[in-house]
Design a protein around this nucleic acid. Structure first.
Lengths: 216, 216
DNA sequence: AAAAAGATTGACACATGTTATAATTTTGAA
DNA sequence: TTCAAAATTATAACATGTGTCAATCTTTTT
């Protein structure tokens, strides 16, 4: 049973490609299941068979594009924790920049159709990296002894979730989102840093003080 | 032309009441426009005439219930800024507590149907009070000179927005939401407080360290 | 090659938010 | 009181996500 799976994968690919084409050339409003099936050259039923729902098609779009900016970031490598975190933010900024408008509408659409899923995904991902970071940083003496890694990770996650949401709805630009994230995270970390890590964090904090007005 | 407006107001009230009844007794899934019109004793068209859309009916529900926990809070009175802020949080906690489940489903439904509106409402309200607080606190020497009130208000708003969203989706309980808010806000304020205000903020921060696990 | 299993298709259906249209009722002005 | 304006109603319709189900095509197994 390998031909069967290959055929299904090809259909999945066709559907993903069709979805992306429609979104890019006609806009998200035109992405209906009927039109999607049409452009992909499959029946209306097939996207449901292969993805389950419209929302899951959209999620597959982000997965396929490796949307998660932290997935392949330097944070996964063995840098000192703080440097890794800053690298992850740089990486995220670059990833977003590449194709901001497209990611934005897709992410927004997912939020509209199922905010629980979108939120859970965003929070879980960020919680994971935030907590990994905190543990790593604790071990390397970059955070005060007794810092609650879980709690710290959750705080970082809360902030990023909100900022992602505001980015998706157009409240923050791409750049401003990253600035807000850096500033918010630095602010939190200022309360947990040690003398050795303080200068870096303070620099990060100070580097984000030039405010940009949110979009009207 | 006063009878006309009175009649419209009565219809609006009937519709709001019907919506609340349906949500409370049958659940949000049963709140369809057709059923709403039925229970309210009006035609299907009338809610659209009087509110514009289903989402706006739900927003009217929150408005009518004075859902905004900061609207009538002690923060509006002439207390020292920090005390006012803490009073506002206590007040918010009480307001939420009163009828948590109902508010939660209504707020959540608004987020699902129009997260921009919901977010704008939440952010704007909190930005306003956050910035008012910051100005007040600056003037009374509770914040470091040179603190950017706008920026500070925005930061507080970002955090509360995220927490509200997580509360709506059931990620945080009522109590945990408030704890996270207090802790997040105190964390931010720690970076801006003066020697006089530091003890209060540190107390607020320390009082929120007993973590509760988020709902699964 | 034939039968069985699995996936796709097509046509239809349903629920829901929303809109259109024409008829009817209600209100305010003449 | 009469009449024009405004609001409401009844009814139908539309678009869309999603489900049903039998028929058909494709792959796997025998």
């Amino acid at each position: 049973m390998v031909e069967r799976e290959k055929a299904k994968d090809m259909n999945r690919a066709k559907i993903r490609a069709a979805a992306e084409t429609i979104i890019r050339t006609e806009g998200m409003e035109k992405l209906t299941m009927r039109r999607l099936a049409d452009v992909a050259g499959v029946s209306l039923r097939t996207p449901y068979n292969l993805f389950g729902s419209k929302t899951e098609v959209l999620i597959a779009l982000l997965d396929g594009a490796q949307f998660d900016p932290f997935q392949n970031s330097p944070a996964r490598e063995n840098l000192p924790a703080l440097a890794a975190l800053m690298g992850a933010l740089d990486h995220a900024e670059a990833t977003f920049e590449e194709d901001e408008a497209y990611f934005r509408v897709v992410f927004r659409e997912i939020m509209i159709s199922d905010p629980i899923e979108a939120q859970a995904t965003a929070v879980d991902g960020v919680l994971a990296i935030g907590q990994a970071f905190a543990i790593q940083a604790l071990n390397s003496g970059e955070l005060k002894d007794g810092t609650d890694a879980k709690e710290l990770g959750r705080h970082l996650g809360i902030q990023l979730t909100a900022i992602l949401g505001m980015w998706a709805t157009g409240f923050f630009s791409n750049k401003e989102s990253m600035r807000q994230t850096r500033r918010g995270w630095a602010g939190v970390l200022l309360n947990h840093c040690t003398d050795t890590s303080r200068p870096l964090i303070e620099a990060m904090y100070r580097a984000t003080t030039s405010a940009e007005e949110p979009a009207p």
